[in-house]
Design a binder for these strands. Structure first.
Lengths: 341, 341
DNA sequence: GCCTCGTTTGTTAGCGGTAACATCCTCATC
DNA sequence: GATGAGGATGTTACCGCTAACAAACGAGGC
């Protein structure tokens, strides 16, 4: 920067100003500095800038996994919103464990991010303590804050939480209600990857079936394993083996649903005639399976975009963090009724 | 750090040493410093550390897209290898454009990463200039260096290139040869997302068919669009409409292949009896389609792991960068022959 | 023509660590 | 017991930039 300053015949401070806030220097100086800067191939060190200004222009983004398309879409939304504003996402993978999340968050914080985006609302008490002590904005995603729920998890009133997501419960309820409305009587559930969001979906589905008077706990098959097409195929067989009279199934994830669908084709089980199948998330390809899969479209990318927007607003202090800024953004979901039901 | 130093009754320098290289301080001091550090909740600022030591402990990782599972797997491999060593990946998305790549690389370099991982070997001359001027290690992935090829792209002998990948050409060749060996005579090609790697696969396939004396350019259907299940379904119909006698198809990506497979089911085209289908990448679920998809398993995650390992070796200067360090790591591929062929 | 005010530029002092060197101490060696 | 080597700790001077304040300058207003 000193070299650029010398070349342009100004002080280093003026170079800094000319490059960061061109409107604060005279037109002529700005031109001279830009020319010199370009000619010398000057790239300002963000590290030094960060140290001096206490702004790193980075954002910690914690997601459970890179292999789950849901969070990749979230990340894509975050990324495409942060980058144009000059922010660099720092991706951290928590592996679905609250303890690992706390650990990852701590290491990310050593990088002094200007903001944090978390997945879900279920954190360790230690994480909540940490968040409460932070002076940078934090946004939680993929879930919505619910009073009682938060208290149970360790968040207090003095820790205002910003969330962007949709109601997993309502979405699960919608699927259950849909299957019941289709006249199905023996409606089962298959779930893997039992994170809090999956559980809420299941809770919603369960409530819907109870409301319809058709809930049978025996038809629930929940396993902790990560979801996959293979698992879906396997669990479908297991579910039908134990309860051959099942006439509808809610698979808590589209990959499970696709696996189940494949397995039905293999076993010669007509879908939806003999068995209705519903998935969740509307992943790529769900509309193209044979038959096309009924599922719930979730606004994953939009959640990422909105979370990043809120965060940027907080980081630039454009709004007093609580008043105008919505604390809770519900982006909804859409039941995509296709041919498997 | 000064507070910790005071609390432990030592100098700041000793605190720094005690935390970074515990073996360089006495057992007793180390214990005192750790206790004080923990008690005060001290988190060393990586930003300051970076400025003082000229090591940011970050690595720029440039990939074309977040929505392509291939690069997500690569990223996962990189991430899981870098993180335990204390490195933080800085993910940059280039959108498949060499110009965008150069732009993204420039902004990433402002963060002073200690190393760079790039996707592919096809960069702009500006990017090559930039790379040549860097003093940090760079690893190229998903592709292998080929003398003539590199020269054409602007790399020179004075810019030693480290690559980790596999031969896209050979992999394409393997598919072509397989289809020919299966006795298919009218073998077509469907490709989207025409990046250099896809083109090399197509080149390999073409060569195989020529060697078998069965190459008919009319059976090639190449479109620039991003690949997807939907596109696969659409292109299958288009291909069969123009050339109904096609009896085998190589789809350059598994999502295309899955779409094609779905469409065959829909149109009542028996696979593989009337039409053989082969995909590429062995994405999740390929083994579970109906019938299971013949495809090529590519070592994407392993490439990420190996690239990160090489990079770490370079960053820690454990090897003189060229001698022992392999310049070109071929991780191979595997043709997964399943039922669609 | 003098004063005030706003704009533009410069000066100074760090941000929070670490490299490099200096110093101090301990202990084996002769 | 003096000597030197080597390990442990301290001191100094930055790393490259920016906040905050100071100074210089020009443009009205009286």
């Amino acid at each position: 920067m000193a070299d650029v300053a010398a070349a342009a015949g100004v002080s280093a401070m003026t170079v800094s100003r000319a490059l960061r806030r061109p409107d604060t220097v005279s037109e002529e100086v700005r031109a001279r500095v830009e020319e010199a800067s370009r000619r010398l191939g000057f790239v300002p060190s963000r590290v030094a800038s960060a140290l001096a200004s206490a702004r790193t222009m980075t954002v910690a983004v914690l997601i459970p996994s890179l292999t789950n398309a849901v969070f990749i879409d979230l990340l894509a939304g975050v990324q495409e919103t942060l980058t144009p504003q000059g922010y660099q996402p720092l991706v951290g993978i928590t592996g679905y464990g609250p303890e690992a999340e706390e650990r990852v968050l701590r290491t990310q914080l050593a990088h002094d991010p200007d903001g944090v985006i978390l997945s879900g609302l279920h954190h360790t008490p230690g994480t909540w303590d940490l968040l409460r002590s932070l002076t940078i904005p934090v946004v939680h995603t993929m879930d919505l804050s619910v009073e009682g729920d938060l208290m149970a998890e360790g968040a207090q009133d003095d820790c205002p939480v910003q969330t962007v997501g949709f109601s997993q419960f309502d979405a699960g309820y919608a699927v259950g209600a849909h299957l019941a409305a289709r006249g199905r009587r023996r409606i089962g559930l298959i779930a893997g990857q039992l994170d809090p969001r999956t559980r809420q979906r299941c809770d919603g589905w369960r409530q819907a079936l109870r409301d319809a008077g058709r809930h049978d706990p025996a038809l629930e098959l929940m396993v902790p394993d990560a979801t996959s097409v293979a698992l879906g195929a396997e669990l479908l067989e297991r579910a039908l083996a134990t309860h051959p009279d099942t006439d509808a199934l809610f698979l808590c994830n589209d990959d499970l649903a696709q696996g189940a669908l494949f397995q039905c084709a293999r076993l010669g089980i007509p879908v939806p005639e003999r068995l209705a199948i519903a998935g969740f998330n509307d992943l790529a390809g769900a509309a193209w399976t044979v038959p096309p899969l009924t599922t719930v479209a979730t606004p994953r990318r939009a959640i990422g975009v909105e979370a990043a927007r809120l965060l940027i607003a907080g980081m630039e202090n454009r709004t007093p963090q609580s008043r105008e800024n919505p604390r809770r953004v519900d982006l909804g979901f859409r039941l995509m009724v296709r041919e498997t039901t």
